[in-house]
C-alpha cells in the first residue's frame, strides 16, 4: 500500500533539514536533538533497505512558488506562497508498505518538534 508522508513546516530561514532552522527543535537539549536526528537517519535507511521508499524530496522556499489560478475565463499567475498558514509543505516521502500500521509507525518516527507530519493514503 502506498502512502504519502507530508512534512508541514516553517523553518526560519527556510532550509533543510528543517529541524536545523526550527526554534522548537533547537530548544531541545543536545542529546534529544541528536537522538531525533539519528532516528530520522535510521528510519530513512530502513525504508531504503526494506525496499519501501519510492521517493522523497525537500521543497524550496514557499515564497519562491508560482501560483496558477483560473479567473474571469483565463489563467492568472501570481507569486506564492500558496497559503499564509503557520506551516508550509516542506518535503515529502512516497512509501510502499505492507500495512497501514507500518505506515503509521514510519510517520511517527519521521515527526519532530515544531512541525506537523501528515500521512495520506495514495489511491490506486
Amino acid at each position: 500500500m502506498k502512502y504519502l508522508i507530508l512534512i508541514h513546516s516553517n523553518p526560519r530561514p527556510w532550509g533543510h533539514p528543517t529541524g536545523d532552522y526550527l526554534p522548537e527543535f533547537q530548544d531541545q537539549p543536545a542529546e534529544v536533538r541528536e537522538r531525533l536526528n539519528a532516528e530520522f537517519e535510521e528510519v530513512l535507511t530502513e525504508l531504503q533497505n526494506r525496499g519501501e521508499l519510492i521517493t522523497g524530496e525537500a521543497l524550496g522556499d514557499p515564497t519562491s512558488s508560482r501560483l496558477f489560478r483560473w479567473q474571469d475565463g483565463e489563467r492568472l499567475v501570481t507569486d506564492g506562497p500558496y497559503a499564509e498558514g503557520k506551516e508550509h509543505l516542506a518535503g515529502f516521502f512516497l512509501i510502499d508498505v505492507e500495512s497501514h500500521a507500518r505506515a503509521e509507525e514510519v510517520t511517527h518516527r519521521f515527526s519532530g518538534p515544531g512541525e506537523t507530519t501528515e500521512l495520506r493514503p495514495v489511491m490506486s
Binding site: 531504503q48 526494506r50 525496499g51 519510492i54 510502499d96
Partner: peptide, 9 residues
Amino acid sequence: VPESTMAQR
C-alpha cells in the same frame, strides 16, 4: 514502483 525500490526489496 521504481526499479531501485524493487531491486532493494
